[in-house]
Design a protein around this nucleic acid. Structure first.
Lengths: 203, 203
DNA sequence: AGTCCAATGGCCCGAATGGGCTATAGATTT
DNA sequence: AAATCTATAGCCCATTCGGGCCATTGGACT
């Protein structure tokens, strides 16, 4: 008997998962929460064999919740549940030790299968996600500073304004931008913002 | 007895909705599809009292499906089901005659309530969505040309390149850009792209 | 100790951008 | 018929941007 708990802000999804689990006698649904901030308390309370974590949630997102859970319960099996395959989320989640990454459009059978795979000790990664992960692994990603700057760019700040806000020389801002353009394969700041949002690097 | 069918690419959501409906004897789940392109055939087959349509789907999206359904079955009640409140989707859906717009994080009770509201003849719009709709109604939105240009901007095209692609003078491109900056409240092309994606104007 | 890399900063320069202002043709709506 | 809106196009000009190239500092990892 494998116990499962879920954190997802969409009640419909929680209900769907609950009933998917009911179709297989091996699984038992033991708890739920609708906010990433409640992930740790939920684990403390029910100690599920597998914790399902939605990636995108308002407030404390799934990645942040994953970090917290892994910090307090290093042995907790966590499987991410996602609507999309935004590259950064996939990479972060797997790097942070998630045991699986499942897209919600999978059939019930596949979801069950993924949970069984995880219980057997293997990673469970949807096929579409795997390629995203492989691609991202070989790229360099953005550094912290670069992400900060990209966020400000997406808000319409000029290089000079960014320099003021971050207490940097405009030259430094330009250098970071040049580097992040290359890292993202962007021609200019507009494309960089589009790519950044699509990959989940910035909100 | 109210019959309900759903089009949503996420199987977990379909299952969740199915079971939410089962909790109320007034509703009967009569059909489902996982692709917007199947919306019209589904309606033809089961003629539900209410068709639930997911807004964001790969391929034929919910907005396009709504258009098709409304064209062939003008009396079909359609309620949009959405993860987000991207402004453009909300506006489009309600303008195109959707009878409701429900966010998936609503409690089962609220979802049921929304369906009952629609059956009583009223519009069912989640509170968070209503304000988005009101805000959008008073704004001017983007024209077709402006959207086209914004898409190219998000791909890193310069004004000259955009002119080449659309067979326009660079001056015209600049004028469209100036206008769309003002319409979106953007300072530059980078912010315009960010706003455009957030509002659901461009993919 | 040595190496790598993120973060910081500088300079030069040509090209692209964005603001302001005007104007015309065609469509749609009133 | 008049008014409005969209798409088209032009001009001028100051600012900004992006590319190229280089240098230093401080961590982190080997």
């Amino acid at each position: 008997m494998t116990t499962v708990a879920i954190v997802d802000d969409h009640s419909v999804v929680r209900i769907g998962i609950k009933y998917v689990l009911m179709t297989d006698s091996e699984f038992k649904f033991v708890g739920e929460a609708d906010d990433g901030a409640d992930a740790v308390p939920l684990v403390e309370r029910v100690h599920p064999d597998i914790l399902l974590l939605d990636v995108r949630m308002p407030g404390t997102g799934g990645i942040a919740a994953l970090k917290e859970v892994r910090a307090k319960f290093p042995d907790q099996r966590v499987v991410m549940l996602s609507m999309s395959d935004a590259e950064e989320d996939v990479y972060q989640a797997l790097t942070l030790g998630a045991r699986g990454y499942v897209i919600k459009d999978n059939t019930p059978g596949r979801i069950i299968g993924a949970l069984k795979t995880v219980m057997s000790g293997e990673l469970a990664i949807s096929e579409s996600v795997r390629s995203v992960y492989e691609a991202r692994k070989s790229e360099r990603g953005l550094t912290g500073r670069e992400k900060e700057i990209l966020v400000l760019v997406s808000k319409g700040c000029s290089n000079a304004e960014i320099g003021d806000i971050l207490h940097l020389s405009p030259n430094t801002v330009k250098n970071h931008l040049k580097n992040l353009f290359e890292a993202l394969g962007a021609a200019d700041r507009a494309e960089a913002v589009a790519i950044g949002i699509r990959r989940g690097l910035i909100a």
